[in-house]
Design a protein around this nucleic acid. Structure first.
Length: 839
RNA sequence: GGGCUCAUAGUUCACUGGUAGAACGCUUCGUUGACAUCGAAGAGGCAGUAGGUUCGAUUCCUACUGGGCCCACCA
């Protein structure tokens, strides 16, 4: 048979893809069934970071697919029970935003014009088409994923996982509904998480305003209407004549106000005049100051960005329009002291295609990351069952104790730093596309009390009187106490508690939630308590009470139900909000394996072996997976995190439409083949470092692939007469070649094992081209002419090449498979991908 | 403001406590039977600057300079 002079990836790749699809060795069950993998083989599993259904495959995806496929093929060939599980992400806010934009452009309609059901239908339609396109692209890369297990964050099974997760975290008191300051996007009309905010710098005017005896400064005068607190640092000598709580009458934007002096250490004395007024409703720092001092909070701007009646004559105006008018008025009143025109203002924008963020205090659902809870799972290395720990500490601990290894190591620092700054995670969104929050409400018709939520929380009260104080509230044992929502949260760490029953320790089971131990005596409990709350003063006279609290009804006289299915009974309506897309992504390693069912897959493949992704989603995704998985499953989601860099153009710039420097992986595959595309993303890429890529680079590796092809061609032409029946007597130099190759094998194996894929690929590249082709084959030309040395040399060439194909296979699966199928080896298997890795 | 990271050949990047490596590019020559998607030979680096540790530093440490990235509530 005539072998073409050059390798043609186009023809070969489709043929090989068909072969792989048919043989189905990406499915570990098939491998076991066909005797490729032992039933009790060690598992090796990776879940594919699910690409967004909105997108098309870009070079970043291609790099991810190449890296993971190498790891997967390598382990499969080594005999592991190997699973690489594919799926896609609905990417709630990004997808919805995209569809909304298209809808507006083509039909001039908003989602509200269509209504929820019809709008969602459109989104699903779009997602479906996009999904098919991206799947096609993934397959083209040669990714040996097990498509029989494909998952989608929004399919029925994942939906159940999400609802179950929500329910369990709520039961555990780690999900609560509360009024807190959140990032509100007035354009998309939804909240946005802290991590999805993109800060942009903008030149703005900076105003110095006379506020009674003080000069305050602001870039946002439109928020200043409600300012009735003036804050300064307690140690600021310039203002020592003012005392905390002092009232000052002054003239302000729309008339006289009474200002109250507040001393707080959050103030930077160096900045401006060292005095500021606060707007707790629309600024995070201000909110926290107000919380500390129990100050009033007042909304100034509505959810559409318009001023509320508090702004008097400016009410109803959009803030951007009102700003110059407010300044004009202040100028007329002589309250503007100075305007700095060169101020650089940092504005928060919604990175998922939304508008400028306006902080608002809103009632939303949150994950409580600080509340200590009793760890419910046994068999976990770094946390004991019954141990009291917060989600935040849990996340830090599993990495600190090396249950999860992050590569490259430097990202561990970044990870810890992020955790230190972590606040409660707002998980509710007001968009429509996503998992609707599994909470149902209904009005209470009677005062019927419904048990909903029980928990046990230890609390220390000093003193012996029968009345106890909690914050500003007094109550006695057995009292039913109604708390303001924002206050009780700190004490109980979540939930919507309207009714509290206090019981002394003697009256209930003395189960110490600190350690899950039951204490018979109060002093034992106190001792345990002291260990966990060293900052609280506990003396021998302190009484420790454990009280139970029970939610009788939701706050607004509503009954509330949290569960995986619509509750029985009438008049229930489901919460209209949807969950942050990362909530479902956080479950990905186990929701894809069938959780909450106790499936065989879950048992076999979880924790997964490696999580491989770009470092840009360390916080969004990896951190959240660790949070959700440790709590819900009691396992780490993965043992190793391998982070690759971002793919950039040859000048190191991000690829973007506006720069016109996007290299489409599919184009590269069409032009140079998938193998070359893969290699170009592997070689020269150190873990965690950005990868620069250019068409030239891909072209270079196409040449390499062709080189491999021609080596095989040479062998085919020169070994036709070789009979593999008997091993010939080998010359010393031939033995040495085999020995050298064995060293190479060890080196490559070691490097892949340590995730040094670039190193492994380079070594192979170099050996294949400059040793095997340039040296060994060149010298073989003579040896093959000599009948004395011919057989030995043929044997050596074929033996090395057969194994070389195996070593190369994870990196360049197509050409190696194609050549393997042509190779005259004995016992050829159905596919190279199930050949045994050389040792 | 805090943190991380990079600086090595024209370019992109590795390895390494012992007087520097690869790929691409470049130069010259060669090659019509494995491959021009090729081969051989070659040019090209005071390893950002200044110190320190060391018998010895490109490698370890410190400072500086200049890039890049991430985080942060300076109103």
């Amino acid at each position: 048979m005539e072998i073409p002079k050059a390798y043609s990836p186009k023809e070969a790749e489709d043929k090989i893809l068909a072969l792989w699809r048919k043989s189905d060795f990406a499915n570990p069950d098939t491998c076991v069934k066909k005797g490729v993998t032992k039933e009790d083989a060690k598992p090796f599993s990776i879940v594919l970071p699910p690409p967004n259904v909105t997108g098309t495959l870009h070079m970043g995806h291609a790099a991810m697919l190449a890296i993971e496929d190498i790891l997967i093929r390598f382990h499969r060939m080594q005999g592991y029970k190997t699973l690489w599980l594919p799926g896609t992400d609905h990417a709630a806010i990004a997808t919805e935003s995209k569809v909304e934009q298209t809808l507006y452009k083509t039909e001039g309609k908003t989602r509200h014009d269509l209504g929820r059901p019809e709008f969602l239908e459109r989104v699903e339609q779009f997602a479906k088409e996009s999904h098919d396109a991206i799947l096609h692209q993934i397959k083209k890369m040669g990714a040996s994923l097990d498509w029989s297990r494909e998952a989608y964050t929004l399919d029925e099974e994942r939906n159940l996982s999400v609802r179950t997760a929500f329910k369990r975290m709520h039961e555990g008191g780690l999900i609560y509904r509360g009024n807190r300051i959140v990032n509100w996007d007035p354009k998309m009309q939804t909240t946005v998480s802290d991590d999805e905010i993109e800060w942009k710098e903008e030149k703005a005017s900076f105003y110095y305003l006379q506020y009674g005896p003080f000069v305050i400064s602001t870039a946002r005068p439109e928020t200043k209407f409600g300012d009735k607190y003036v804050v300064m640092h307690p140690k600021d000598k310039r203002y020592k004549q003012y005392t905390h709580g002092q009232k000052i009458e002054l003239e302000w934007i729309t008339g006289p106000v009474t200002a109250t002096v507040i001393k707080d250490e959050a103030i930077d004395m160096e900045f401006g005049t060292g005095v500021m007024t606060i707007t707790p409703w629309h600024d995070t720092t201000d909110f926290e100051i107000a919380e500390r001092h129990n100050l009033d909070k007042e909304q100034i701007i509505d959810l559409k960005g318009k001023l509320l009646p508090i702004a008097k004559e400016f009410a109803g105006m959009h803030i951007t329009k009102a700003r110059p008018l407010i300044i004009q008025k202040l100028q007329e009143k002589g309250l503007v002291k100075k305007i700095d025109e060169n101020y650089v203002h940092r504005i928060a924008t919604n990175s998922r295609g939304g508008g400028i963020i306006e902080p608002q205090i809103m009632r939303q659902w949150f994950v409580d990351v600080n509340k200590p809870f009793t760890f419910p799972h046994a068999g976990f290395k770094s946390v004991k069952k019954g141990e009291l720990i917060s989600l935040k500490d849990l996340m830090a601990r599993v990495v600190k104790k090396k249950e999860i290894e992050i590569l490259p190591k430097r990202f561990e620092k970044t990870y810890f730093h992020w955790i230190d700054n972590l606040r409660d995670w707002c998980i509710s969104r007001q968009i429509w596309f996503g998992h609707q929050i599994p909470v149902w409400y209904r009005e209470l018709k009677t005062e019927k009390k419904i048990g909903f939520h029980e928990n046990v929380v230890p609390q220390v009260f000093a003193g012996k009187t029968k009345t106890y104080r909690l914050r500003d509230h007094e109550f006695e044992i057995g009292d039913k106490v109604l708390f303001e929502n924002s206050q009780q949260r700190e004490i109980f760490g979540g939930g919507e508690i309207t009714n509290i029953q206090i019981t002394t320790v003697e009256k209930i089971d003395l189960k110490d939630p600190l350690h899950g131990t039951t204490y018979k005596r109060q002093d034992e409990l106190i001792a345990a308590f002291k260990r966990h709350y060293p900052e609280r003063k506990v003396t021998s006279k302190t009484e420790v009470f454990v009280y139970t609290y029970r939610l009788i009804a939701g706050k607004d006289g509503q009954e509330l139900f949290v569960g995986t299915e619509t509750p029985k009974g009438e008049r229930w309506t489901q919460d209209t909000d949807t969950l942050d897309t990362w909530f479902s992504s956080g479950l990905w390693t186990f929701s894809t394996l069938g959780w909450p069912e106790k499936t065989k897959d879950l048992k076999t493949f979880h924790p997964t072996s490696v999580l491989e992704t770009g470092y840009d989603i360390l916080f969004f995704w990896i951190a959240r997976m660790i949070l959700m998985t440790t709590y819900l499953v009691g396992q780490v989601p993965f043992k190793t995190v391998y982070l690759h860099g971002l793919v950039r153009d040859d000048k190191g710039r991000k690829m973007s439409k506006s720069l016109g420097n996007i290299i489409d992986p599919l184009d590269m595959i069409t032009k140079y083949g998938a193998d070359a595309t893969r290699l170009s993303l592997i070689i020269g890429a150190a873990p965690g470092n950005d990868i620069k890529i250019s068409e030239d680079k891909v072209r270079g590796y196409r040449n390499f692939v062709n080189k491999v092809w021609n080596i095989s061609r040479f062998l085919a032409m020169n070994t036709q007469d070789f009979t593999s029946k008997r091993k010939p007597v080998l010359s010393a130099s031939d033995k040495k070649l085999l020995n050298d190759f064995s060293k190479l094998t060890k080196e490559v194996t070691k490097n892949i094992g340590f995730f040094r894929l670039s190193q492994a690929a380079e070594t192979l590249y170099h050996y294949t081209w400059h040793t095997f082709a340039d040296k060994i084959i060149e010298e073989s030309k003579k040896l093959l002419e000599n009948q004395k040395t011919r057989a030995s040399r043929q044997y050596v060439l074929l033996t090395i090449f057969a194994d070389l194909l195996k070593l190369l296979h994870p990196f360049v699966p197509f050409v190696t498979e194609e050549l393997y199928q042509q190779l005259p080896v004995k016992n050829r298997k159905e596919s190279l991908m199930i050949e045994q890795w050389p040792v």
